[in-house]
Simulated assay, not measured.
Amino acid sequence: MYPERFSNLPEYAFPRLRALLDHHDPGGEVVDMTIGEPKHPFPDWVPTVIADHSEEFGRYPPNDGTPALRGAIRDWVARRFGTTLEADSQIAAVNGTREALYNVGMALFPERKAGQVPLVLIPNPFYQVYMLAALSVAAEPMFVPATRATGYLPDYASLPPEVLNRVTAAYVCSPSNPQGAVASAAYWEELFTLAERHDFRILSDECYSEIYRDTPPPGALEIAARMGADPERVVLFESLSKRSNVPGLRSGFVAAGPRSMARIRQLRAYTGAPIPLPLQRVSERLWAEEDHVIANRALYAEKFAMADDLLGAVPGYASPEGGFFLWLPVPDGESAALRLWQEAGVRVLPGAYLSQTVAGENPGKEYIRVAMVAPKDKTARGLTSLRDCLYR
């Protein structure tokens, strides 16, 4: 029998979008700005590395990543965040970070906390896998608004102590999806202090950390080390999908304290889908190389400067600090998405599809999410059509 806790799940965002749009004809040349699938070129040596190791498709890959891959990840973390990890006890390669963001619940969430069903804090809007991770282990997801009033990050510190005492984990995404807000060092410090006081883990989804406008976003591991926090207090999730424009590679990593990682690895030994060895080999090189990341970031910077020029006069427009989405205010996200499709052929995602309605309020209802992943000329065409359709 289907578990009752799954009976009221909202339909996933993209099937909902297809149901909204696909029985209508587009009103112009189609520009798809819905899914966060990078379209910038990946390094031209990627196919060569895979081909050079193609015979390794005939071998079972190591579940947690080759020593060379875990070493490359360790070295990247040290360069990027100034933090030292043990490759053999604190890092595991994963087949896309969505896998790890989900399985962390089964590995680390207790069945009870303080004699009650544990709470999992989730920013609202949110990446939907966070909710499923909680529900799958019968924890209770608690959606905390991440709105303009809170700097587009969840204000977990505003929750009452009796709530925080039930919390077993808190998801944070920085830069945030969909708003592109960056958690400052002060934000992280406050959250670590809160987590220590109320004994919960911080689950830091930093998959967009290498796409930023000016200053590299501080990371959770970086601040934890600076504060001398318990290494078991934080779990980091990172990906090559956005950083290196290889979403189909399905390669990322999870990093945590040794005790947490032992439990994550034990679960993966039973259930994990390891990355094929040729893809691990190219991942080793991608984590070790920064030139393509710098070039990728420059392409996004050009497109966001263009968005600022085209949309900067829109009331409520906020130029994102990081990530590759625009979070644009509209009277109603579904109506705006349908109108934009019917009149201009531009596909965007209603913000309500990324948010949960709590006490009758949906923080994404008056927004649309626009993915800035296409080449510059196509992005310019889509943004111009969007502006002329919705804001003039």
Rank of each mutant, 00 (worst) to 15 (best):
R268N: 11
P329N: 08
D377G: 09
V348S: 06
L17S: 03
V314W: 04
A72P: 02
S260V: 06
P247I: 10
V246N: 04
R392P: 13
A298G: 08
Y187M: 10
M142D: 04
Q128W: 10
Y270S: 13
I294G: 13
A288V: 06
Q280H: 01
A149G: 11
G180N: 04
L135F: 09
T384E: 13
F6L: 01
F14T: 12
D308L: 10
P15Y: 00
E162N: 12
T168C: 12
L221Y: 10
R297L: 05
A305D: 13
A149K: 12
L383Q: 02
M131E: 14
V254R: 04
G312F: 01
V46N: 01
P231A: 07
Q280W: 00
D75P: 09
P161M: 02
P41V: 07
I73T: 02
G105T: 02
E162V: 12
A87W: 04
F200L: 10
S239D: 14
N165A: 11
F253K: 03
E361R: 13
P145N: 04
H24K: 07
A107Q: 01
C389K: 03
L240I: 06
S174D: 00
H53S: 13
R74G: 10
G333V: 07
Y212T: 07
A13Q: 07
S319H: 13
S184P: 07
P47A: 02
E289T: 15
Q342E: 13
P141D: 03
G151F: 04
G351T: 08
E321Q: 11
E140M: 14
L119M: 14
Y353G: 00
R201P: 08
R16W: 01
S283G: 15
S54C: 08
D291F: 15
A157E: 11
L203S: 00
A256R: 01
G151H: 03
M142V: 10
R265D: 00
E321T: 04
Q116S: 12
V30D: 07
S244V: 06
F324V: 12
R74Y: 09
R16D: 03
R74W: 07
V46R: 00
G27S: 08
P175C: 02
S335D: 15
L153C: 04
A139W: 00
A114K: 14
A298W: 05
D75S: 11
N124G: 05
F14A: 07
L299C: 14
S241I: 02
N296L: 07
S209Y: 11
Y156V: 02
F253S: 05
P3D: 05
D377P: 06
V358H: 08
Y187Q: 13
V282M: 00
Y300A: 08
T84Q: 13
Q342L: 05
M106N: 15
